[in-house]
């Protein structure tokens, strides 16, 4: 590699970092000047602390959100690419279309939604297996604990694109290891790529493999912070293992698990990589909402329609999360 190319990255990145720093300093100084000197507001320090992050987030997320809202009220597609028309009627039409016409070529919104729910429900598999492994690792006096933990955490540490592509090639009918193993024990191979049901299962298997370590680590943290005295007291009362699990472990783990499961649900619902790389957008029967959105926007270039579609997905997930928060109190520890 030649030195000039090497310096390009270094020069550009350090330049950008420098200018971001200058920009943030300017913001800080002006907040300080206005808040402390002019308004004499007691929350000036707070504003100085939170503003940089939220200015950045605003730039990265709020502008795109506004853009999508505007786009949702247009008829933009390949036929109206250069000069799309914006009108209320176009917007209504786009939103109506999400529910009345196929969102892709043959699947309509409701089946994709139900499939997405089914797909998202795997978070409970992540959580239960994660919890189980954590409980095994947390047994007193367990040997090789660190070795086990280091290995079990690997799927999380691997770059996701690499894992996804590896799994995809392992679902090859002739040369993938699941089928080779099946053949060796005398069973016929499974058509992971062509069969709709097995294809979906392949996606779930991959994502379960990827998702367990996060839940395991979270659970382990929770378990370690439960004081041993609880269990000792229960032992003295002669409680069985199951009773202890039900009455001590679960209730105390709830504040740890509830927010993590919520994050897990959001991430899985929005998981693009795994369905995209395993199914390669071949079978419509394997699409979940976000991959269907990607296809509508990029394969079929239905810009206006897919903006409306995206907003609906976002609103749906947002309201679902609020219901979950109300129901489990997952944010209680966070907001107080």
């Amino acid at each position: 590699m030649n030195s000039q190319v090497v310096l390009t990255a270094l020069g550009q990145v350090s330049g950008t970092v420098f200018w971001m720093f200058v920009g943030f300093m300017l913001i800080e100084v002006s907040i300080w000047a206005v808040g402390n000197k002019v308004l004499k507001n007691k929350n000036t320090l707070v504003a100085m602390l939170v503003t940089p992050a939220f200015v950045g987030l605003g730039l990265l997320l709020v502008f795109p959100l506004i853009y999508e809202v505007v786009l949702a009220f247009s008829n933009m597609n390949l036929y109206h690419f250069r000069n799309p028309e914006f009108s209320l009627l176009n917007g209504l039409d786009n939103f109506k279309r999400v529910f009345t016409k196929p969102v892709l070529q043959s699947t309509t919104f409701v089946p994709v939604l139900l499939r997405t729910f089914l797909w998202t429900s795997q978070v409970f598999i992540h959580a239960s297996f994660g919890m189980l492994l954590a409980m095994l690792l947390n047994r007193p006096g367990l040997k090789f604990k660190n070795v086990y933990r280091a290995i079990l955490i690997l799927p999380w540490a691997m770059p996701q694109v690499i894992s996804a592509l590896t799994w995809r090639s392992e679902f090859n009918f002739e040369y993938g290891f699941p089928n080779i193993l099946l053949n060796r024990i005398g069973l016929p191979g499974i058509q992971w790529k062509a069969d709709a049901v097995w294809n979906f299962i392949a996606m779930v298997l991959t994502n379960v493999w990827l998702g367990i370590p996060f839940m395991m680590v979270i659970s382990l943290g929770g378990l370690q912070s439960i004081s041993a005295e609880f269990y000792e007291a229960a032992d003295m009362d002669g409680a069985s293992g199951w009773t202890k699990f039900q009455n001590i472990t679960l209730p105390l783990m709830k504040p740890v698990l509830a927010p993590s499961v919520m994050l897990g649900i959001i991430w899985t619902f929005n998981n693009f990589n795994i369905p995209y790389f395993i199914n390669e957008m071949k079978l419509e029967s394997s699409e979940i909402l976000v991959t269907a959105l990607f296809r509508a926007a990029f394969n079929f270039s239905q810009y206006g329609f897919s903006a409306a579609f995206a907003l609906i997905i976002f609103a749906l997930l947002f309201s679902m999360t609020l219901v979950y928060v109300k129901w489990t109190g997952a944010l209680k520890g966070v907001t107080d």
Binding site: L60, L61, I266, V290, L293, A310, I313, F314, L317
Partner: peptide, 8 residues
């Protein structure tokens, strides 16, 4: 965390 990446 809920914004679909394709939207951005």
């Amino acid at each position: 965390q809920m914004i679909p990446a394709a939207m951005l």
